[in-house]
């Protein structure tokens, strides 16, 4: 399979200062193996765009322990005390984006659309400095699309072409993130032959996926053991 790479080769695709789009909602649908590689690396000044920063010491939370992050952009960091602490200490920049705006901005980034007007956050601190415009008597704000240097997604299975299927709500941000990075890397539990995935179940067509990495964690009792 051309797209299959070893997890140890993944870091060659990441440069210092890159913006990484990372799928996941909490720890669900999160590329835990790729994050481990990043956490063990000497990469620095990375910006991560993701809904959360995992949990304390887990998932993207591991990157807070190594100091490779310069900035996090997402909707909800409050529940990870390490993120709050890093921000309080001035070690981490944080940009808050409402969850629906985050999803739509990444969708636009992958769809060749420069930005969009939304009613979300009108009249709030989040809207400060953003262009306002009225459509049919209602006020909207302009939000710019989000694109990344590298997208890291987590799927349940890939076929050897790179088509992806997801596990239930593990789909979350992965579908749009797979469209919005210059390089897209998918971490998966299982790789199957072309033709084994039902066309109806494929959510991310292979055109978006550049590389596939096999997950190192085994799922037991509904959880990735040892992650």
């Amino acid at each position: 399979m051309e797209k299959l790479i070893d997890r140890s080769d993944f870091l060659k695709l990441i440069d210092n200062g890159d913006t990484l789009l990372v799928g996941g909602f909490g720890l669900s649908g999160t590329p835990l193996t790729l994050i481990d590689e990043l956490a063990a690396s000497d990469k620095k000044d990375l910006t991560v765009v993701s809904n959360n920063l995992g949990e304390e010491g887990r998932g993207l939370g591991k990157l807070l322990l190594t100091g490779c992050l310069k900035k996090a952009k997402g909707s909800y960091f409050t529940t990870n005390r390490d993120a709050v602490q890093a921000w309080s200490d001035g070690k981490l920049e944080i940009e808050l984006v409402p969850q629906g705006t985050l999803a739509e901005a990444i969708r636009c980034g992958g769809a060749g659309i420069g930005g969009f007007y939304t009613k979300t956050a009108v009249g709030t601190k989040v809207a400060e400095g953003k262009e306002e415009r009225e459509f049919d008597g209602e006020t909207y704000i302009l939000e710019k699309a989000i694109k990344g240097d590298v997208s890291l997604v987590k799927a349940l299975k890939a076929d050897t072409l790179g088509n992806l299927v997801y596990d239930h709500t593990g789909r979350n941000f992965n579908k749009v993130i797979a469209t919005a990075g210059k390089i897209v890397i998918a971490e998966v539990d299982e790789i199957v032959e072309v033709g084994e995935l039902e066309p109806l179940e494929i959510v991310t067509p292979h055109v978006y996926v550049d590389y596939v990495v096999k997950n190192k964690y085994e799922k037991k009792g509904g959880k990735y053991i040892g992650s």
Binding site: Q99, A121, V122
Partner: peptide, 20 residues
């Protein structure tokens, strides 16, 4: 979503729900 003077670093989907 936020209390003045406290570190609240999350908005989640609240503003989207309020708007829509």
């Amino acid at each position: 979503w936020a209390v003045p003077g406290k570190t609240i670093l999350g908005v989640g989907g609240a503003m989207d729900l309020v708007a829509g």
